[in-house]
């Protein structure tokens, strides 16, 4: 299968230029002192120290992680049954449903969030509830589509075999469908959790201004404060924490699959 392996070369080259190189520059900013020009680097860890030593920043990061985590959990809980039901439809209907789920994503997010603000004005809800409605709304289609993709066109023979062996519906779901859908859930988590950590527009608009989140903080440092060094450092710390938590999730996935 060597020839297939070669298919990755163009993209490896591409990510070197378009993902790795910009990230190296961001990392350089994070590791240098603000105010000096690109020519006279002065390496320092003080940006990281500043973040880690101020409980305010840690609190903001924690709130962001908590909101992202809960959003992801809600998306799985609401999205999984939907994905399952869709995968039981006829093939044409499945395509139709996937398209129906994507269409609203083409309407500007800010516009939809303003709409939610207007709709939710009529309901007396906690601001946190409003934030989660907005967040789950924004990310749910990704989760449904990812899970659906992994269980659609699943080998029907597996299900029939399971029924033939006397397993009931629940058992079949737990032993056959669920394990098969784990990779889909994992990529759903990736597509929901990762962007959710740094998103802040929805919580800000729906939460009555009660939310300062990490994405907000990074933007404040890059734009309002004009301190790219610290902004870069925050984004690196955030990335490291997320990578570590994703690594743990993946290990759990591997263990789950082996079991």
């Amino acid at each position: 299968m060597k020839s297939f392996f070669r298919m990755t070369y163009p993209y490896i080259l591409w990510i070197a230029v378009f993902i790795v190189a910009p990230m190296v520059m961001i990392a350089l900013y994070a590791l240098t002192r603000s105010g000096n020009s690109m020519l006279t680097f002065q390496f320092t860890l003080e940006n990281f120290a500043k973040f880690l030593s101020d409980p305010t920043f840690m609190r903001v990061l924690w709130t962001s992680l908590r909101i992202a985590l809960l959003t992801t959990v809600f998306c799985i809980l609401i999205g999984y049954p939907a994905a399952l039901f869709i995968s039981n439809m006829s093939e044409r209907k499945q395509t139709m449903m996937v398209l129906l789920l994507t269409l609203p994503m083409w309407i500007n997010m800010l516009l939809k969030t303003y709409a939610w603000r207007g709709i939710l004005l009529n309901f007396d809800l906690e601001s946190e509830t409003k934030v989660f409605i907005g967040m789950v709304y924004d990310f749910l289609p990704y989760m449904i589509i990812q899970i659906h993709t992994s269980i659609s066109k699943m080998d029907r023979n597996l299900l029939i075999a399971s029924y033939d062996l006397g397993a009931n519906k629940w058992k079949t779901f737990l032993k056959v469908t669920l394990p098969l859908s784990v990779p889909g859930i994992i990529s759903g988590i990736t597509l929901v959790f990762l962007p959710a950590v740094s998103s802040f527009v929805i919580p800000k608009l729906l939460g009555g201004g009660d939310y300062v989140l990490i994405g907000n903080l990074i933007e404040i440092y890059f734009l309002q404060a004009g301190d790219w060094n610290f902004g870069s450092a925050i984004s690196l710390i955030m990335a490291l924490i997320i990578i570590a938590s994703m690594y743990l999730t993946r290990r759990m996935d591997r263990n789950g699959q082996e079991a």
Partner: peptide, 15 residues
């Protein structure tokens, strides 16, 4: 601006 931004975040966080 950087200093005010940092203090402002604390105000909004009710610290």
């Amino acid at each position: 601006m950087t200093e005010l931004a940092e203090l402002w975040i604390k105000v909004m966080l009710h610290e």
